[in-house]
């Protein structure tokens, strides 16, 4: 259950990163389509909401939120590292 929460959370943060032009370019190495941004953002927040539910179910009302926030710290950091590292490969990246 906890593992599910972490993966869904990671997906959520990744989708949120993709909803931003700068990170989309970093991660995908091409220009984003303008219609995709809102969809990515919506899906990202939806995934985060699901992961909150999963966390609460796995660890309960007391420890669920603690787990969610604690793992969000690490997961968001991984997305940041991924974006910064992928940006290196792109010749015309910022």
């Amino acid at each position: 259950m906890l593992i599910t929460m972490i993966f869904v959370q990671a997906a959520g943060f990744l989708l949120l990163a993709l909803s931003q032009k700068y990170h989309y370019r970093n991660l995908m190495h091409r220009a984003p389509q303008s219609s995709g941004q809102t969809a990515f953002r919506f899906a990202g927040f939806a995934a985060l909401a699901v992961s909150v539910g999963t966390g609460l179910q796995a660890e309960g009302m007391q420890f669920g939120p603690i787990w969610w926030l604690a793992s969000a710290n690490v997961v968001a950091l991984l997305v940041l590292v991924l974006s910064a590292w992928r940006a290196e490969g792109e010749p015309n990246g910022r």
Partner: peptide, 26 residues
Amino acid sequence: KDFFTFRRRKGQRSWLDAHNAAAVFA
């Protein structure tokens, strides 16, 4: 907007990005 942003090799900008990320994520 800068949530996931870390710009490498940009001197002071990189330090600020790291500072922000460490502060905001946790």
